[in-house]
Design a binder for these strands. Structure first.
Lengths: 176, 176
DNA sequence: CTGTATCCCAGCGGATACTG
DNA sequence: CAGTATCCGCTGGGATACAG
C-alpha cells in the first residue's frame, strides 16, 4: 500500500497501547518545554536576551508568567542564573542557557523551518537563520550516526529490549 | 563575555519588543502542533497508525480530544482522510500524514533525542530510531545549505529586509 | 468502529496592582 | 530592575454517555 512508505518501519503499529506520558521521550520533553511561554523564552535565550524584563517583553509574555516559567526552566536545568553587574549598579542576576537548553536548538530550528515553509504570509519568513561562517541558510535534518540523511520512511523504530520485556510481563500480568 | 558565545549573532538582542504571535514561525508552528495531543497523534502517524481508535488509544488521549484534534490537523493539512476497506467490511476513513505532516519529522526527532538524553530513567530511552538502511541510530542536526554542521553559537539571525522596514515605520509612527 | 455531546477540572496566560 | 500577588477568562483534556 502506498501509505506504508509514509510510516516508520517496525512493530510499533501493532502494539495494543502505549504509556504515552511515562515512556515517550517526546511527551517527556513536552512536559518541560511544551508551553508557549517556555518556547518563547528559550528562543529569546538563543537570540541573546539575558535579563528578566528583556526576556519577558521580547517573548511577549507577562512578567508573572515569565517569572513562573523561568523558575521552572532553571529547576529543569535549561537556564541558570548568573550574577552580573553593570558599572555603578548593584549586582543582579541574569538568565543564561545551559547546555541542556542549547541542545534544544535543533528542535527550535525544525519548528521555525516548518513554520517558514507552511505558515508564512506574503512577506516571507520573518527571521532568517544563517551560518555565520559561510552565510548559507540553516535547515534541520535527520541523519544517522553514519552520516546519511534519513527521511521518515527510511527510519525504523525499535522498542528497547528492557522495555519490551517489561511490556510482555505486563501483558501476561493483565491477562492473568 | 563567555555568554556571548552561547547566543546567536545578530541584532535581535537589541530590539525593543517583538510581535511574537504574528511574526515568529516558531510561535505559528506551535499554534498548530503545540498541544500534547497533536504531537502524540503525529507521532502515531509516524509509527504507522491510521485508524481513529488506534490513533486515540496509542496516543493516550480520549476519543473526544482525538476527534477534535484530528479535525484541526486535517484542516491544517497535516493529515488527510482516505477511504479504505477491509475485505467484507464497509468503507471507512483512515488518517494519513501529508507531506506537511511528514515534514515535522526533524522536530519530533529533535524532541525525542533531547528527551532521551536528559529525561530518561535508568532503563534508558524507551524507543530507538535507526536508519533502516544501515542500522545506525538517528539524530537531528542543524546544517547550512552548504552542508556544514552548525552549532547554535555559529548561527546568525537576520530580520528579513521587508520586516525591518515595517518595523522602522512602526517605530517612528509610535514615536510620532 | 468512528465518532459526538456534555460536564468538569486543572493549567496557561493576560491584566493590574504592589514590593524590594 | 526584578519580581510577587490576585483575579479572571480560555482552552486542553479526562470521563461518561450517546449515535450512526
Amino acid at each position: 500500500m502506498a501509505t506504508d512508505s509514509m510510516t516508520l518501519k517496525g512493530s510499533l503499529a501493532d502494539r495494543d497501547s502505549w504509556d504515552a506520558t511515562d515512556e515517550c521521550s517526546i511527551a517527556r520533553a513536552l512536559d518541560v518545554v511544551g508551553t508557549h511561554s517556555a518556547m518563547m523564552l528559550i528562543r529569546e535565550g538563543y537570540y541573546g536576551s539575558h535579563r528578566f524584563d528583556d526576556l519577558a517583553r521580547r517573548a511577549g509574555i507577562t512578567e508573572a508568567i515569565a517569572a513562573k516559567r523561568l523558575r521552572e526552566l532553571v529547576d529543569a536545568g535549561l537556564f541558570c542564573k548568573r550574577p552580573y553587574r553593570e558599572p555603578g549598579q548593584r549586582t543582579r542576576d541574569e538568565y543564561v542557557l545551559t547546555e541542556r537548553g542549547r541542545d534544544l536548538f535543533p528542535a527550535l530550528v525544525s519548528l521555525m523551518s516548518w513554520g517558514d515553509r507552511y505558515l508564512s504570509d506574503r512577506q516571507g519568513p520573518p527571521i532568517q537563520l544563517i551560518h555565520s561562517g559561510c552565510g548559507a541558510p540553516l535547515q534541520a535534518s535527520v541523519r544517522c550516526a553514519a552520516g546519511h540523511e534519513v527521511a521518515m520512511y527510511e527510519a525504523t523504530a525499535e522498542i528497547s529490549p528492557q522495555r519490551r520485556a517489561r511490556s510482555e510481563t505486563r501483558k501476561s500480568l493483565s491477562r492473568g
